[in-house]
Design a binder for these strands. Structure first.
Lengths: 108, 108
DNA sequence: TGTAAGTATCTACGCATGTCGATGTCTGGT
DNA sequence: ACCAGACATCGACATGCGTAGATACTTACA
């Protein structure tokens, strides 16, 4: 993995490396059509509305969530490409164990 | 995904959400037996030795790397359990798209 | 014992980040 | 036109984090 490749993935990891944002992503993904409006998400947290809005903005700007305004409500939707990029990173791509490797505790 | 589950995974994501540490993990994983000593890793970066040592400590304390001292050298080894936990998170577990979901741009 | 090399720890500094309160913006209804 | 509700933005504060220099520790070797 080159420095450039790392620099591309790090923003996604940074966005997910927060308990609130991780739960927000999980909640969006488990909602109908992998989307949810802020009014669905906020009540699950003991945080102010601006704070939730801030975290959703971080997830949006990192490319993990799409935004769509419908009337008064704003719906956030999971971006499949981003989720696949994460899954690929830890399976086929740069961050998976080589098959033959036998590190400590690998217990053949 | 519960708050507790999120709290367990976040430290791993936090540890990887840094370009230097992500590359360190990648380098360790691509080395023979998924292990490498500091002397192998440090030259790849334009950072001081204490800084590299600090990052390796973060990866170690988060459970991503094991430490083993052999003579003067210290070898860091990837922990398969941690790597699997990450892979699982983005595939079968809490952060994967439900199969039937058709969010924006999902392109059937 | 002394010295050199590899690595970790300590301290400090600047920047980024999570949080909130106050306020702004937009939409729908009366 | 006015009001109420949903959400975003702004400003400020406390905390966390990445980095480096100085220093300590450990091992190998003469």
């Amino acid at each position: 993995m080159t420095a450039d490749q790392a620099a591309q993935v790090v923003p996604l990891l940074k966005a997910l490396a927060d308990p609130v944002r991780l739960r927000l992503m999980s909640m969006v993904l488990s909602h109908e059509n992998a989307e949810a409006c802020v009014c669905d998400l906020q009540p699950a947290f003991d945080l102010s509305q601006p704070t939730i809005s801030h975290h959703l903005k971080v997830l949006h700007e990192s490319g993990l969530l799409n935004r769509e305004k419908r009337g008064v409500w704003v719906y956030y939707q999971a971006r499949p490409e981003a989720m696949e990029a994460m899954a690929t990173l830890f399976t086929t791509a740069g961050l998976s164990l080589p098959e033959g490797a036998q590190p400590v505790g690998a217990g053949a």
